[in-house]
């Protein structure tokens, strides 16, 4: 009984290491073929539409609500100290440093990451990837690299849009609903938010998140078992691993960027 459990634990651990190995090998292969895809911008632009543009609605709506909620919550706390004119600062800093990149990452993993995995997995199970190989078209170049690049480009752009819309949401609540003077709202932002310290650090986070989520998404699709069950598991793994990676990396990056 004990031996069985140990064996199963060992097998599981070996499986995990084998997956990590395959994932790393896959990433190296993808990065190796990436320059070739720069000569085929049409393929990347097409994927930018599917991966980026189609994720825009959820990002804008979520950004608006997150900004509005942040403004409302900040007001409730700050008004007791007579510091309600700092709402914009509170909203902007939390959105730029944390919520913008993290929310965008999580939403991207759920919306575009799962779609990427499902699409590539389905191409694998319907032999489209094998078919391409036999037509002497490398699926790494034709399928994987454009999607990887499109995702990698999309996430920081979506993050920037999320941040802008969230601040706009904060503005709507603070100025239009709570009647804060809009000059105060914007001047606080201008005076206290640092472009490099706050905005760029958030963007660096989004670049890292984008890289990791897209890597997980395309790898899971490419590596999935070509059955409906395997495809379902791969899609779930993309969302779960992608989300956990975003949250874990966020802690590490925050510790590096803001602890000094």
């Amino acid at each position: 009984m004990m031996r069985d459990k140990l064996q199963s634990l060992g097998r599981h651990t070996l499986d995990i290491f084998a997956r990590i190995g395959r994932g790393a090998e896959f990433l190296i292969h993808t990065l190796y073929v990436l320059p070739a895809i720069l000569l085929r911008p049409a393929l990347v632009i097409r994927q930018l539409y599917y991966v980026g543009v189609q994720t825009l609605v959820i990002i804008v709506v979520a950004g608006l609500f997150v900004g509005m909620v942040m403004a409302l919550q900040s007001y409730i706390v700050l008004v007791d100290f007579g510091a309600e004119e700092s709402i914009s600062l509170m909203v902007a800093l939390s959105i730029m440093r944390e919520l913008g990149p993290v929310f965008t990452g999580l939403l991207f993993a759920g919306r575009a990451g799962s779609a990427l995995t499902a699409e590539i997995g389905l191409m694998k199970s319907t032999e489209q990837l094998s078919g391409m190989e036999m037509m002497a078209v490398d699926p790494m170049k034709y399928v994987i690299a454009p999607r990887f690049l499109a995702g990698f480009i999309s996430v920081p752009l979506l993050t920037a849009i999320f941040m802008s819309v969230a601040i706009l949401g904060g503005y709507l609540v603070a100025v239009e609903l709570l009647q804060l003077y809009d000059g105060v709202f914007w001047s606080q932002l201008q005076a206290k938010v640092d472009f490099y310290e706050d905005f760029m650090n958030g963007m660096i986070k989004s670049v890292v998140f984008g890289f990791v989520i897209v890597w997980i998404a395309v790898f899971e699709g490419f590596d999935c078992l070509p059955t409906s069950e395997g495809l379902g598991q791969a899609t779930t793994r993309t969302v779960v691993h992608g989300s956990l990676a975003v949250l874990g990396l966020d802690f590490i990056l925050t510790a590096i960027m803001f602890s000094a």
């Binding site: 319907t126 032999e127 078919g131 036999m134 002497a136 078209v137 034709y142």
Partner: peptide, 26 residues
Amino acid sequence: GMLFQSGALLTDLNVYDNVAFPLREH
């Protein structure tokens, strides 16, 4: 050339573009 059991056509391209695919690629 290989003919797969499922046909393995690229599902985002129509019949014409599927047949044109290897010609355009190569």
